[in-house]
């Protein structure tokens, strides 16, 4: 379990994260939902050490995060962070070089699944193809947790379908997934747990299926209720 507790982060004069707390459990798909600027991307970046935060704590299985944690957590950001001149195959080799948890056979399977060509250069990929490759890099290693920032945004409909299918596939089985998204309609049936963010803090955190059964509301309904109030 990844535990985020009372994290506060300031950017210039604004508290982007203002007492954010939530949990991402292994074997479940958790989703951070919020309007633009609610701090979703920032939360993920803070968890990956890509941006500092002033207060609070983030713990992996009870322990503070250090460099070894990143063998156990992978991150798929909202864009593909690889040099444009690099070939896809070279990118895979890069990951293999630095991650002990890299699983080369799974990487090959994923490349095949997404229909990607190893000889292609990163700079020549379309947005949809880049998103798929991004997923390969994030899902191939044997990590316990996968963080994804807006995995469906900005890509074409068909690529989106392929990406969405990953969530119910064996690629994510047994892992803890934390993602952020705008496309709540498409993702709603895939996620287990939702965390609603407003003003940099958690306003509502709930189990999607339970809410649907008990209150008869969809996640979108709750979103409207809580975030637009």
């Amino acid at each position: 379990m990844i535990e985020v507790e009372n994290v506060r982060k300031r950017y210039r004069r604004r508290w982007v994260l203002d007492g954010l707390s939530f949990r991402a459990e292994k074997g479940r798909i958790t989703c951070l939902i919020g309007l633009n600027g609610a701090g979703k991307s920032t939360a993920l970046k803070a968890m990956m050490g890509l941006t500092p935060y002033q207060e609070g704590s983030i713990r992996l299985e009870g322990m503070a995060l250090d460099k070894r944690s990143y063998e156990r957590i992978s991150f798929v950001p909202d864009h593909l962070p690889m040099p444009s001149a690099m070939k896809l195959g070279e990118g895979l080799q890069f990951m293999a070089d630095f991650y002990a948890s890299w699983n080369a056979s799974r990487a090959r399977e994923l490349m095949h699944f997404f229909d990607l060509n190893e000889g292609e250069r990163v700079g020549n990929l379309s947005k949809g193809t880049a998103a798929k490759y991004n997923l390969v890099l994030g899902l191939a290693p044997d990590t316990d947790y996968v963080l994804m920032d807006e995995p469906l945004s900005g890509i074409d409909v068909f690529s989106r379908e392929t990406v969405a299918s990953v969530f119910s596939s064996e690629w994510l089985e047994g892992r803890g997934v934390l993602l952020t998204t705008h496309e709540i309609a498409e993702m709603e049936h895939l996620i287990d747990h939702a965390v609603l963010l407003k003003g940099g803090r958690t306003v509502r955190s709930f189990d999607c299926e339970r809410v649907r059964d008990e209150e008869g509301k969809s996640v979108l309904d709750l979103m409207r209720e809580v975030l637009l109030a």
């Binding site: 990143y70 593909l80 962070p81 040099p83 444009s84 890069f94 630095f98 991650y99 990163v122």
Partner: peptide, 16 residues
């Protein structure tokens, strides 16, 4: 550029 490789480097499981 489009792909900020800095993300990748900073995420590596190695001492910064």
């Amino acid at each position: 550029g489009r792909g900020t490789f800095a993300y990748r480097l900073l995420m590596l499981p190695t001492a910064r």
